[in-house]
Design a protein around this nucleic acid. Structure first.
Length: 376
RNA sequence: GGGGAGAUUCCAGAGCGGUCAAAUGGGGCAGACUGUAAAUCUGUUGGCGAAGCCUUCGGAGGUUCGAAUCCUCCUCUCCCCA
């Protein structure tokens, strides 16, 4: 895997680059739509390609392992073939589920025992089998198995958790390096920085992660409820330490403003459920602000959904119509909003990239952050 | 013509002497959602306000310390039999 930095912003740490994977190039900064269960919820593949202009999407080890099961994906010839997606793919390791499914899991040195949220059956994830599973899934980028700590988090807990994540990281790399890809193309393993909101822990973790000289590095454990300023402070601190010539991936972030601010801090890759989940729940993000389509004020607004939007739904449908769909509980509402929001997120990342190259990123970013945080 | 049931806050529908501004559901209004156990969840829904007060349960009277709840009459709806 190769990462080439084309351009670096003068007024910030933002950079524009190209990540080359076995399934093609990714222009960074990039937003990666989340496709947890082998699909980006409510979005057809052709739309994901032609309208959203997605370059890389995510899958999730935990979900795919439980359903349809790794054997089915293996039989299909890997996740790319199973989905019908021939562009880059990234799988998360299940580390986030260690956080979000805290009620039905037990964490030990060896790994984590889970109860399936589907049928309650018991399973174990270890750094080794998570790598094995991700080999079978066959994503271009696979993630190390970590614990995503909650917020707030006691420092002792955060330290212990970080240390176990580091030990797991070594085991992930050991397994990764002693096995090979199953489908004839290269995979990259990204380690994940933890340390909650403690600067000294974050620094230590970033150094530990850097020592692996991985193809790319991720920042985890943020955007879990901490104040934005704390998130930016941690991101900045970690970005300074992580190798400058490798892509940096801020996991689970975030709002359009979060993404812009983090690009300025040197982050190259993002993923978040917000455009799709909030979209299904009636929220539309635009470059002028965000709208709750359920709100009464749109009931007789027959203007296009988003005059400046880049996807076909933006001019195909009116605000009043989309509101009607959401009020009626029609599935199409969520489909329209998901498509629109993802197209907007991809536009935002692409525009940021162009501004970085043009040398006008910082002033544009400040202006966009103001607009994008406005409730319409 | 005979017999029966009923009218409750936006709707449906509980309540059947005080603990009722009135259950519950729907609808309405608003909020939340950040590596997806989410096409989900939460709040609110008579009027002013901080506790509190004021006007409400078809209409008019009445009984009672006290009535959505009991009595009388009126108006209107629905059902069954002719």
């Amino acid at each position: 895997m190769k990462f080439i930095i084309q351009s670096t912003d003068r007024a910030s740490s933002a950079r524009a680059g190209t990540l080359e994977t076995a399934h093609g190039k990714v222009q960074t900064p990039i937003f990666m739509p989340v496709g947890t269960a082998a699909n980006v919820k409510a979005v057809h593949l052709p739309h994901l390609v032609d309208d959203v202009k997605a370059q890389i999407i995510l899958g999730n080890t935990y979900h795919l392992y439980l359903r349809p099961g790794v054997d089915i994906i293996r039989q299909a010839g890997g996740l790319h073939r199973f989905i019908g997606w021939d562009k880059p793919l990234l799988t998360d390791s299940g580390g986030y589920q260690v956080y979000s499914l805290t009620e039905i899991r037990k964490l030990k040195e060896e790994g984590v025992t889970f109860q399936s949220h589907i049928d309650g059956s018991k399973h174990q994830f270890t750094p080794e089998n998570v790598v094995d599973i991700q080999r079978k899934i066959g994503a271009d980028i696979i993630m190390a198995f970590d614990e995503c700590t909650p917020y707030p988090c006691e420092k002792d807990y955060a330290r212990n958790s970080m240390e176990i994540t580091h030990r797991w990281l070594q085991r992930c790399f050991d397994r990764f390096n002693s096995t090979g890809p199953l489908y004839g193309y290269e995979q990259a393993l990204f380690p994940i920085v933890q340390g909650s909101v403690y600067p000294d822990l974050r620094k230590k973790s970033a150094e530990a992660v850097s020592s692996f000289e991985a193809d790319g590095n991720a920042i985890g454990g943020l955007s879990v409820g901490e104040p934005h300023e704390m998130m930016y402070e941690m991101t900045e601190l970690v970005c300074d330490i992580l190798p400058h010539d490798r892509p940096r991936y801020l996991m689970g972030v975030g709002t359009p403003a979060n993404i812009l601010e983090s690009i300025a801090l040197g982050v190259d890759m993002f993923d978040c459920v917000m455009p799709t989940r909030n979209g299904r729940n009636g929220m539309i993000f635009t470059r002028d602000g965000f709208m709750n389509m359920l709100n009464n004020k749109w009931k007789d607004d027959f203007s296009p959904l988003d005059e400046e939007g880049t996807s076909f739904v933006d001019r195909q449908y009116t605000k009043a119509y989309v509101r009607h769909l959401f009020k009626s509980g029609e599935v199409l509402g969520g489909m329209i909003a998901s498509l629109h929001n993802l197209a907007f997120y991809l536009w935002l990342a692409g525009e940021a990239r162009e501004r970085i190259i043009a040398g006008t990123f910082s002033s544009w970013k400040d202006q966009m952050v103001r607009k994008v945080t406005t409730r319409l």
